[in-house]
Design a protein around this nucleic acid. Structure first.
Lengths: 227, 227
DNA sequence: TTTTAGTTGTGAATGAATTCACAGGAAAAA
DNA sequence: TTTTTCCTGTGAATTCATTCACAACTAAAA
């Protein structure tokens, strides 16, 4: 961590929309590309063009967190990338545990993008005796019964749930009871967590259903994002 | 398909938001649960309570597509579920192809929820000679070079892309050229497709980044959905 | 030095999504 | 039959997100 990254960005006074946070992730990726292409600065216009957004949107999103640009010049590529990393909290290492070593869990354990962004997966849990003790990409699979103590011992901050829908709520409850405040859920079920715990659910069937709706309706109606 | 399901719902006259479509998927799942619990009717109040939404939101979402309820009574559970299936287009069989039989691709091929919702995965493609010809859950993995003709031959309507980011755009271009109008992308890259093709991208790193942002900021600011 | 071209940051205007509030209707109780 | 209770469907009001439009500033050219 550089001294740069530990400098705090101004605390936003207003509610930040989910869309804005999502776009910050998008800007971060595009800035990495611009950096690799040798650009030292980038304008909101160029950034917007590359992501099919409006320049005003880019500037407004960034303005919630501070003034990072120079009038007449644009934004310094590397510095802005670093600032966004700081805003998103990805300029530090997060300790992540994975629960469920089935099909999706195994795929996630092998997913290299996580590590690249500072998400360190160092614990995997399962309830299948045949899997417990075995090695997956250098990580030993632990008994799910040891989840509470292991979460504390390894200072886990984020739990990825990839167990069948029928077990997911039970796992979520254990995580919440152990003090976990962030859960990424792949089970196709609406988990209930307290309001101070942030939950993101990736439901692949629902993504397919969106595509299906569009295929059925694209001749009749406008669809968002399809100017 | 019943005669019920082929009856057309009224064409919406106004743009339907992504959020509304997403919530229709949510209602659909909750209606299946209510049905299994023996409820013949359900009020917008009850449906809202179970999904942490407002009753007005539920009624408004449904009203874009027609009048499905009875004043004083609520909505007929089974019938409404069927109507939503019809709106979403999941009361028919969709032909789906998967490109990429790596970690994520393999997990998706084994994902049972797809088949349950009428998404029939009947073709898998890869460029790895060791995988081509082998069997995955009863589906032979084909050479990616045969993609264009195979998409036509099997009447594929939806393509799931699960190849590395570096190859994803190339695959998307092939799909678009072959006439595919719906793509579900798992590669961590912003694919470019024409405006008449619907694209959904699932980027797991971005989901993690959202959690990270929340963990960093929950003490300072409001976060959407966390009243 | 002055002018011109370029770009940010932000209050105001606009547009979109959600919630309110109530007329209209259905069923059950009185 | 009449009254009461319940619930939908929807126009209006409100809240939230995006876009506009321009003052403020920078750099480079004249």
């Amino acid at each position: 961590m550089t001294s740069e990254s530990s400098k705090k960005h101004p605390t936003p006074t207003r509610r930040i929309s989910e869309s804005t946070i999502h776009r910050l992730s998008v800007y971060y990726r595009q800035l990495a590309i611009l950096e690799s292409e040798g650009y030292h600065t980038v304008s909101s216009k160029e950034l917007a063009k590359r992501e099919k957004l409006t320049p005003a949107q880019v500037r407004k999103d960034l303005s919630f967190f501070g003034s990072f640009g120079t009038r007449g010049l644009g934004y310094p590529t590397t510095e802005l990338k670093q600032k966004i990393a700081n805003i998103l909290g990805i300029d530090k290492l997060w300790h992540v545990a994975l629960v469920g070593a089935g099909n999706i869990g195994s795929a996630l354990a092998s997913y290299k993008e996580f590590a690249k962004q500072g998400f360190e997966l160092n614990s995997i849990f399962d309830n299948d005796q045949r899997k417990i003790g075995s090695n997956h990409k250098g990580i030993t699979i632990s008994d799910i019964g040891t989840l509470p103590e292991a979460l504390k011992k390894h200072h886990i901050e984020i739990v990825v749930i990839a167990v069948p829908a029928s077990n997911a709520q039970k796992i979520a409850d254990i995580c919440v009871a152990t003090g976990i405040k962030a859960i990424l859920n792949f089970a196709p079920i609406n988990l209930k967590v307290p309001s101070d715990v942030v939950l993101r659910t990736v439901n692949m069937s629902m993504e397919m259903e969106y595509l299906s709706f569009y295929l059925c309706n694209r001749h009749n109606i406008d669809v968002p994002g399809k100017g």
